[in-house]
Amino acid sequence: MKNRLRLLAYPYILWMALFVVAPIVIVVIYAFGSAGGGFTFDNFSRMGTYLPVFIRSFKLAFEATVFCILLGYPLAYILSKESSRSQGILVLLVLLPMWMNFLLRTYAWMSLLENTGLINKLLTLIGLSPVKMINTPGAIILGMVYNYLPFMVLPIYSVISKLDYSLIEAAQDLGASSAGVFRRVIFPLSLPGVLSGITMVFVPSVSTFVISQLLGGGKYMLLGDLIELEFLGSAYNPYLGSAVALVMMIVVIIMLLIMNRFGEGEEQAVMI
């Protein structure tokens, strides 16, 4: 029977060949192509012009990821300490905004951050001078943190809440202070959660074009904006767009591989 059930996998393998593998192969072919046809490295040699865009995207995504860890880790830790009855509802409250359309969540910040927006009104009301917030890199980072924070909280929370409590008790019995328990037991064991959180926040941040257009006012071009512009915008050039997408993914994959390798080393060190 196992042999017969195995057959059920084949249509899906065929499907993946068509809708997962083939599209990636096409992107690679386009990256080495041009409107005139033929094989060329042109798209990659032109990439130098876009170096500032690459640097800006990776910098903003990196900063957003750091903020997500700084907010998300304590949040996940505090949630895991709550009584199991309130935990369920508190975690649901963290996730609930995710069910609101992503564009609308970002759009909502526009009316708060605008020059005549609610935050600035509040500031003038208490006698402070208004601050320019919208259309700044800070606003873009805020948008990334707001949208992707739950992606950081959830994996960390699920690792911490499943920690074997006897390990913590053992550390305490052996004389560790509560800071020591955290630093030497809880934190190292929660690293896998942090690593998957980083992946889930960094990838959408580095490739966004919605957040930079809504909260950055289109003034700070990110990789996502560049790709969108080459595919659907005025600068139609899917060959260059494919090359940008390809380079972006390769850099991201290399970074994540290095990070995971580093993380695995850390885990093994803890085991020893």
Binding site: L18, F19, V20, A22, P23, I24, I26, V27, Y30, T199, V203, P204, V206, S207, T208, F209, G224, I227, E228, F231, P238, G241, S242, A245, M248, M249, V252
Partner: peptide, 16 residues
């Protein structure tokens, strides 16, 4: 598809 950036999935399917 789960790990890939949405924009890459989007443009690659668009090209396909």
């Amino acid at each position: 598809p789960l790990m890939n950036a949405d924009i890459v999935t989007g443009v690659s399917l668009c090209l396909l």
